[in-house]
Design a protein around this nucleic acid. Sequence first.
DNA 1: AACATCGATTGAATCGTTTCAGAAGTTTGC
DNA 2: GCAAACTTCTGAAACGATTCAATCGATGTT
Lengths: 343, 343
Amino acid sequence: MKKITIEDVAKRAGVSKGTVSAVMNARNTVKTETRDHVLEVMKELHFRPQGIARNLRSGNQDKCIGIIIKDVNYPFYTAIATGVRDYANSKGYSLLITSSENNHQSEKRFSQLFAAKDIKGAIIAPLVDGTAEIEHLFKLKMINYPFVLLEDVRGIQANVVTIDNSNAIKKAVKYLMDCGHSRIVHFAGPPSSSHTEERIEGFRHAFSESTLAFKEDMIVSIGSRQEESYGNTLNYFRKRPRNEYPTAIVCFNDQQALAILTALKELNIRVPDDISIIGNDDISYAKIYPVPLTTIRALQREIGQRAAELLIRNIESSKLLPVERVVLETELIARESTRAIMR
Amino acid sequence: MKKITIEDVAKRAGVSKGTVSAVMNARNTVKTETRDHVLEVMKELHFRPQGIARNLRSGNQDKCIGIIIKDVNYPFYTAIATGVRDYANSKGYSLLITSSENNHQSEKRFSQLFAAKDIKGAIIAPLVDGTAEIEHLFKLKMINYPFVLLEDVRGIQANVVTIDNSNAIKKAVKYLMDCGHSRIVHFAGPPSSSHTEERIEGFRHAFSESTLAFKEDMIVSIGSRQEESYGNTLNYFRKRPRNEYPTAIVCFNDQQALAILTALKELNIRVPDDISIIGNDDISYAKIYPVPLTTIRALQREIGQRAAELLIRNIESSKLLPVERVVLETELIARESTRAIMR
DNA sequence: AACATCGATTGAATCGTTTCAGAAGTTTGC
DNA sequence: GCAAACTTCTGAAACGATTCAATCGATGTT
């Protein structure tokens, strides 16, 4: 049960390897008769040429980069990927997308895979929780493999393109304060993202810069996955009396916000009449949510473009470039999920 | 400006290629001193090992398949990809996703890329319009490269996993007829999909099986991209008097349905009061549309799983397997965008 | 009949790594 | 003091295709 090579085909067909190669590459120097015979033998032996060996000799021309996102079903990431693709294509690169699905093993596996397959560089949305498993990133650095991260990772110096999360949440909180809200809570995201921590910090900051007092129980960890956030939201409200409800929630992201909206509907809590909701990201569907979502817009395509630009610059450089860190600003988009309240 | 190889590093560091290789693979047979020196030289020369050559000798172990979808921002496709990933992972395969973005060139390029990079097989959502550019599929067949299509392609015999589009639309039309509608139109999709044609056919069939008469102008080609469908819908209604409006629209897919909903809102046409809308696919967001969408559900994850199963079976077979064609059934999901009317 | 031409095929060199048997040098055991 | 064992390193073979100069036969030309 050994692998079938071009040699086996050549032998069986009674020709040389060169001829088989010529057939496969559709060169017109082969007699039709020979060609047909070789094709037949290829089929007969079920010969699958190894692309890798092909490329080695002929010097792998294709330009191609990869991106590792966390969730292929979250539009935030696919929008970033679109930005990457646009820029990459303009420079003649193709884009391969993979999704770690919040799994360290997958992230690790893909980063190796990219290097192994001669994909020229990678953009990585890294998982940051757990015991900071980042050896795979060091491995990439060792072999001078170009990559750009979409979140800060402690303990490694690398190119990063990200958004100013702290400031984003600050904007959200200040907007709510300006609308007269004081009982504001932050429904925080999963520990697997550095955004979670940065956003919590922004929330704290907003209070310390205001006259209102911050209390620890204003931070509620409910995750960002659909069912998880939905369930946690139900719990949160069922556990407390109506007069202790917050008047506004700052969400971790728009996916979570949707789960919260759904849960609140279930609980007969009206948005924005009873509670104001403010999201994060501004994914394309946010504006058609059951209640069109007020949210903090991250320029997703631009994130992608900037990351791609940085990556390709590194790929095409013949010497090591200094590490860069790009932080993009955000913008509050006011829709219908928030309202001003009387005091 | 030639490429730097392991040999250059070895020479510069005053060691053999074998030693450099050992350093890169973190083998513990290298003296720390030597290791550090080699690493330094690697950095100095900015040496990037060619993964391809690596894999050649060491016999490429990684199991990995690819999928070419049409639009990475349409949840229908990412849901399919998720199904593929789940099955693939269970069999030890990783998944690489690429998006042709409705571009023949890209589709072609990716199919080559997959073969070249020793990705074991591919699932392809093929573009079918234009002068049926399918040479790249024939090329794959020639090298016995395993692949599965997600739509029928005329002129090639290949594995296909798809849904019964004709029947899907029939269900939609019959449902509407049962609700008392007779002025029903079909807003058809783009020519780049074989689904478009099959769905039109299903629409025709539904009428021929009923007492109602089919008229050509019941088929309106408006595409499926957001802005395109939106604009075409506006045009369609602005061009005709109110009493010639249809009472129900069968949409090509849910993406198009959203654009139509948006356009109708703009036109102050109420859904479902004035017009019933029925979608196709049942993407995850369909239930939270401004008007929760009645739609024909395609089991997206199952499509992915079946395709993956078929693909991997072909990959792991040592001989050519007979071509298979899997057609999955659909289900009507009634929500709020349709209503019964009096006659 | 000798020579040039052309089409089809061959086979050895090549791509850039990994692998591993064995050499060289060093330490341990007795 | 010598063999055995261990550590570190070397160098040539191998991976499986492509490439291209050289060859071979057949055909055409004079």
